[in-house]
Each structure stands twice: as C-alpha cells, then as structure tokens.
Design a protein around this nucleic acid. Structure first.
Lengths: 208, 208, 208, 208
DNA sequence: TATGAATGAGTTTTCATTCAT
DNA sequence: GATGAATGAAAACTCATTCAT
C-alpha cells in the first residue's frame, strides 16, 4: 500500500467520520428543536428525519431508536449552555460582583435569544422524573453552575466585598433557585418582574 | 303528570347528574394521577379508563376527546391548590409575617405530601407553551397567589412590620419566583437547600 | 337486578364469549392456513387479518402479538389430529392388526385430504429447534400417538397375534418413524412408494 | 501487448477469479450456517454479510439478491453430503451388507457431528413446496442416494446374501424413508430409539 | 349509561437493495 | 472490488375514536 493511498484512505476515514458526525448532529439538532417546539409529547421520528432532510430509515441508520436520540439532545443542551457568549461587555469586570452581574446578564440574554434552551431543559427535567438516565447529566449541569457561583462568592467574601457571614454553598444555590424560578415564572407570567430587580436583590443579599 | 312522578323524575335527574359528575371526576382524577406518574408524553386514554375502572368507550361517553379531559385536570389542580390544609400552626399567627411563614410551611407541606401537584403543574406550564387554552387558568392561579401575597405585604408595610420602601407587587412576585425556583430545583438537586433558609432570606428582604 | 335481567346479561355474556371465541378461531385458522401455504417465513399479520376478514388492529385486539397466534395454531393442529375421521371402514375390525391397518389408512387419508396438517406440523417441528415453547405440545402429540400404538402392539402380543419377542415401545416408535419418513419423503419424491407397501412391511415385522 | 503483460493479466484473472470464488463461498457458507441456526424465517442479509466479514453492499456485489444465495446453499449442502467421511470402519467391509451398515453408520455420524446438514435440508424441503426451483436439486439428492442403495441391494440379491424376492427399488426407498423418519423424529423425541435397532430391522427385512 | 368490538390513521422499526466514491 | 451511506417499501404494533347493542 503506497503512502499516497494510505493517506487518501486516512483522509477518507476522516471525511467519513466528519460526515457521520455531521449527520448525527443534524438529527440531534432537529430533535432538540422539535422538543422545544412541540415537547416530548409530540416528538415524532418522522418529523425529526424530515427536518434533518433525511429519510426515516436514515435516522435509524444513525440512531437505533427514538430513545437513543435523547442522550445526544442532552449533550447538545449542555454544549449550548457552555457556549453561552461570555459577552464582550462582561469581560471587563473581573471582580466577584462583576462576575455575578455578568452571569445574570448572559443568562438573561440566552433566554431572550435562545428560549429553547430553557424549554428543552424543562422538558428534560420533568422527564428525568421517570427516566433516571437523564439525571446524571442534569445534575452535572447544576453542579457546574453551582460550583462556579460558589467560587465567585468565596472570592467575594475573601476579598471582603461580600458579607463575611455568607455560606458560599447556600448562596450559590439561592442564586440558581432565583434564576430557575424567574425563568419558569416567565412562561406563565411573562414580564412580571425585571431581571435587573432580581440582580439588585441578589446584590442586596451579598453586600448589605 | 302527577306530582309524585315529577318528584321522582327530578330526584332521578339529581342522582343522574350526581352520578355523571362522579364519573367525570373519577376520570379526571385518573388523568391527573397518570400525568403525574408518566407525564403527558405517556398519557393514554386506555390507561385513564382502566384506572377509573370504566371501559374506554365510557370515557368517550363523558369526554368527547382526550383533549377534553385537560380542562378538568386544570380545575382539579386548582382545587388541590385551594384545599391545601390551612394547617393548625398557621391559624394562630395572623400577623403579616405569620401569614408569610404559614404560606411557606403549607407550600412545603403540600410538596412533601402531594408532589404530584407540582409535577402536574409543571407539565401544564410546559404544555401551555403550545396550548394557549391552558394559559388563562395558569395565569389565574399565579394571580390569585400573587394577589394574596401582595395583600399580606401591603398589610405588613402598613403595620410598619415590613420595610417601608417595599413594592408589594414586586415583593409578591419575588416570593413566588423563589418558591417556584425551589420546587423546580428540587427535582434535579433534591435537598440542595432547606426551605427554612429560603424563608429566612425572605424575612431578611421583608424586615431588614 | 331481576332474574330476567340477569339471564339476559348472562346470555349476553355467553354470546359475547362465543363471538370472541369465533373471532379468535378464525384468526388462528387464517394463520394456520397461511403457514401451510407460505411457511413461517412469509407469514404476515396483515395477510392473516385480511384472510380472517378483519382489520389489522382487530387482530391485535385479540392477539397481543404475532407470536401469540402460534399457541393457537398448535392447538388447532392438535385438534385436527384428534378429529381425523376414524373412518367407517376401519371401525369394523377391532383386532390389533385391524387397528394398525386403520391407523395407516386414516393417516394416509388425512395426508391426501388435508396435507396442510403435515406441512404445518413440519414447520412447527423445525421451529421448535429455536422456540422451546413449542416442544411440549409436539412431544405430547408424539406421546399420544406412541402410547396408542404401544397399546395396540401389546394387545397383539398378548393375544398371540403378534410376535412374542416384540418390544411394544420400540415397535411403536418404528411405526411412527416409518410414517414420518414416508410423509416427509413424499414432499421431495412423491409417489416413490406406496403406502400399502409400507403397511405390508410393518405387518411383516409384527407377524413373521 | 507484451507476453509478460498478458501473463500478468492472465495470472491476475486467475487470482481474481479465485478470490471471487472464495468470497462467494464464504457468503454461501454464512447463509448455510444461519439457516441452520435460525431458519429461513430469520435469515437476514445483514447477518449473512456480518458473518462472512464483509459489508452488506459487498454481498450484493456477489449476489444480486437474497434469493440468489439459495442455489449456492443447495450446492453446499450437496457437497456436504458427498464429502461425508467414508469412515475407516466402512472401508474394510465391501460386502453389500457391509455397505448398508456403513451407510447407516456414516449417516448417523454425520447427524451427530453436523446436524445442520439435516436441518438445512429440512428447511429446503419445506421451502421447495413453494419454490419449485429447489425441487430438481433435492430430487437429484434423493435419486443419488436411492441409486446407490438400489445398486447395493441388487448386488446383495445377486450374490445371494439378500432375500431373492426383494425389489431393489422399493427396498432402497424404504431405507431412505426409515432414515428420514428417524432423523425427523429425533427433533421432537430425541433418543426415542437407537439407530442400531433401525439397522437391525433393515437387516431383518433384507436377510430373513 | 355502559361496554365489547372494531378500526383508520398513524408510529416506530426493519430490511433488501441501491448509490456514490 | 469494497464500502459507508442512504432509502422505499413494508413490517409489527399503537391509539384515539366510533359503533352496535
């Protein structure tokens, strides 16, 4: 086997793998979007295949069953969370309070621009009540978020900017709860409260 | 037509109506329970009928379609909310702060004893994204809750127990958000925070 | 509940059950026929439903799955075997040799008139290699047949008509093997041998 | 075109053909094995390709369709029959009775060592009821077997070892029927009778 | 009122086969 | 020659709904 041939073959493998990943991703993305639009209740493999622009049999070529699409959706969701644009503005302020503010702003921004993130997350959270396999990923998501906040709060306390008697772990949880509550409340009663006000209260709890 | 006959007929109508309501309610209850257990995704009319102990055709005698069961479920949910046991403890303390505490305690108690209330509510909230007919009822629920809290906060401010600069409307919303956030967070990260701590923070916001 | 009503109801139950049994039987019969015509390989639920004159969903109303039809087919086959017309001619001769002759004649007659019996049996025998659940019924069939033959041979030996040194159990098995072999051989090489000749040889083994 | 080139090309053609035959054979062998294991009912081209270690598309490169594999399977079966190890024992005794004994022993041995031969044969026999194209090969198999036995019986009669009144053709058929019956009976009632006993009876019919 | 039976329209999944490279 | 990708057609099975009684 000549070098050239081997190279071609390896290149071929690479493109093949790339193509495969692309297809799988487009199917997962279609699933993700359809869950956001119609919920798990109305999720149909044929709709997924149609949106991905492939035959229904092609879907099953890449994913053995409908259920097998879900882990991919979870991964995609996690990825969406991790790639929230740590926006330009916020990069300036690296103080603990600045970090908190930045987190609020980016969360709010994400919710405005990509509300499907929160919708799919909610669907998955409810589904996790019956499907234990979803729990680890969702917990990991919470943990990562919580860990980051806890770290920021500790920093703030250490630097003397935040109240000395704060329990960083509890405080982080409270911030998460506040944001989750806000987002969930928005569905039924949109515009009931300003995100900014929420931030004010958090600052009040942190500083006063 | 004799008096006696008319009476019998009216009596018959009354029992007939009562029986009809009973059947309808048992079907709605079965639906409510199955949504809590399996979600809308896995809700099947046959399962509903089976749990209510009637034939699938009987279900359709009382409810023209599957969708027609949902308004009943919403009503049942609202009823469940309204009949939360205004527990012994809470009756004692009629001060604004006592009322807030009571609300937290009863909410927590309900969640412990009847978690399906919150699960079904969440399912309905998510569904309301696609089914506009659900929104009014859910908004009414939020409004009632909000109105009550707003009233209590106003009382507290008026009585001088709460901070004078509080905006009762915002404060009520914040309390709701906090509770919703707590309950939703419990699904993924149970035991992350104590409900009591939440109450402390609310008190802190109200009093300090 | 009046006697009359109860009777009506019981009568209703009886007709309902009868109807149910009829439908189930017609579906099993259709399956049986289609296995005989096309083999397990080409057995399709839609064909079964079509031949029974019902919707495919009706088939699943009576039988949860395709596999669930098979026990019914086995039962039907066993019934077909048991209702082989113990033909008029044969009833005359009740001697052991007459019984043996009768069995040969009726078997031959069945094979001529209802070859599907043997075809379905063969399909089931081959399938039993992979589906253990079929074995008991097939063994019961063999056992019943073998028991009868063994009994006849013993009678013949006891009456001094058959050779005294015969082992009834072995002899019965040999007769069965001979008939099975004949029937199976007929498929590939029809008319290779006369059934009467086979009987002659059996008589030779029994008497000489 | 130089001599050298032509030679290379011819050599290439030869290896190419050899390779082609090898591939085809491995696919046929895989089919043969899978029929023995799972029956025609569960025969899948993907499984065949997988067992042969090639891609499903490669299978269709060598065999236009699934059906086209079957003639190969028949050929393989015929070959398996013809290559039954004419075992050590049998080579000694060249008398007609010895030949019959040898045939029984080798058949029995084959059935013990390679039961798939008989299973696949049975599957093919049943299939031949619907697929006429299978019949010639199966009949050829029977004919060859029958011809050999007929020849041996004639020899025995001619040599005066066997009964003079034997009809070699019928006798050969009877032996085949007995063996087919035995093998088929073994599936449902294994161990019901000893192969040796069968041989004894055959000898009884031949000699007495 | 109540129900067993029945079904049309889907739903997921399978499979032999084809295509582009 | 060989393969990964893709697919049309069909497979089993499901489900809300209707019908006859």
């Amino acid at each position: 086997m000549s070098e050239t041939y081997r190279e071609q073959k390896e290149y071929g493998n690479r493109t093949r793998t790339a193509h495969r990943d692309k297809r799988r991703h487009s199917l997962v993305l279609a699933t993700y979007q359809l869950i956001a639009e119609k919920g798990f209740e109305q999720l149909r493999t044929r709709d997924v295949a149609a949106r991905a622009g492939v035959n229904i049999a092609t879907l099953h070529y890449y994913f053995a069953s409908k259920e097998d699409l879900i882990p991919g959706v979870v991964d995609h969701l996690l990825h969406e969370f991790s790639t929230v644009p740590t926006s330009l503005l916020t990069m300036n302020d690296t103080t603990p309070l600045g970090q908190i503010r930045a987190m609020f702003l980016t969360t709010h921004h994400s919710f405005q621009e990509k509300p499907e993130i929160f919708i799919v997350l909610s669907e998955l959270v409810l589904r996790s009540l019956r499907d234990a396999s979803l729990r680890p990923a969702l917990q990991r998501l919470d943990c990562g978020w919580h860990g980051y906040l806890q770290h920021v709060v500790m920093d703030g306390v250490y630097q003397g900017v935040f109240r000395a008697d704060l329990d960083p772990e509890d405080m982080a949880t409270k911030v998460i709860i506040l944001i989750k509550g806000f987002l969930f409340h928005q569905i039924t009663s949109p515009g009931a409260i300003d995100f900014q006000q929420l931030l004010n209260d958090v600052e009040h709890l942190l500083l006063s």
